[in-house]
Amino acid sequence: MAPLLELKDVSARYGPVAALHGVSLTVDAGEIVAILGANGAGKTTTLRAVSGTVRRDGDVVFAGKRLGRMGPEGTARAGIAHVPEGRGIFAELTVWENLRMGAYMRRGRPNFSTVLEYFPWLDARRNQQAGTLSGGEQQMLALARAFLQRPRLLMLDEPSLGLAPLVTREVFRVVSDLNHKEGLAVLVVEQNAAIALGAAQRAYVLETGNVALSGTAEQLKSDDAVRSAYLGY
């Protein structure tokens, strides 16, 4: 079966600085795939190249169709939800308005009840300004909003950034939940390799804009180089 998402030799640059030198990777339907790597390895740029928030060269194929240079709004409409670095919350809007924005592309009244099953606490906070939520709550709100997009692929950029370990674990529990129960495919970029490999089925390791290593989560967990560089034991 063809993969849900396939990157073929994708490169990207910020002005004169190249950030990706030909990355190829795949994500299958219903799979969680992690991208690991150090700061500046090109993890975030990979997601941005897919969603079109940075200009890219090379092919991105999604659900059998080549994604043209359609910009972020086109990618979103094709069925990819991208929760960017820093979560992309509308700080001045209320929690509920943020959620309504998630359903922006849907016609008719959005169905909030499923979301509230996964994120029951949102209901009580609906009129709170999103900027006043804690970091973990903002991450959850971003997840809930992305889920309301009804995407086929969810891309998460450093969901653990700035969160306490317990909160991080909770975020990944919800992500796994969405994956199991809703069959949502996830491509997650993460510094915290241990927790990412715990949730993911497969992973890629990026180094200076190239794929250095790839395999199943189990394989990578037992790889000596990965263990010493990213897992720390």
Partner: peptide
């Protein structure tokens, strides 16, 4: 909905585009 999207786009245009807002 359109008014909401305009407010969202003013706050954070990139995030709005990622949600499919033109």
């Amino acid at each position: 909905k359109l008014g909401l999207a305009m407010r969202a786009g003013a706050v954070n245009p990139v995030a709005a585009r990622l949600l499919g807002v033109r």
